[in-house]
Amino acid sequence: MDEKKTILYVDDEQTNLLLFKINFQKRYNVITCLSGLDGLEELRSHPEIDIVISDMKMPGMDGVEFAKKAKTEFPQIIFYILTGFDISPEIEEILNTKIIHKYYCKPFNVNEIEESINSVDNLVQKKSQ
């Protein structure tokens, strides 16, 4: 697997998008957008997206809603929530229903996320084999 994985990162804060892209673009193709709706658009236009990491609290559509819709439409993607809050009942629910794979708390830890993605990647590969 020489090809870089594509990560869609959704956050309503521009700075966060910028910093995420800077910190992860070396190892991943990073697509960013400012809302869930945009995220869905990006998913449709970029079928190569493997991983979605979404903020929780966003205007319009929140992270959970976005995750549900995205997962319905693109069941193969691996979805993560990166929240400024602690875990919430909504997050717990979609975690339990396997809509999301995991959640992270801000401020994000690059290493933690990378390790997680790698392990999932391995898992997916094993599955597909």
């Binding site: 966060n16 800077i22 929240t83 400024g84 809050f85 401020p107």
Partner: peptide
Amino acid sequence: VAHEINNPLNFINGG
């Protein structure tokens, strides 16, 4: 409060 602080912390951290 945590959320609002977390974002700036995320800025600092990411930065």
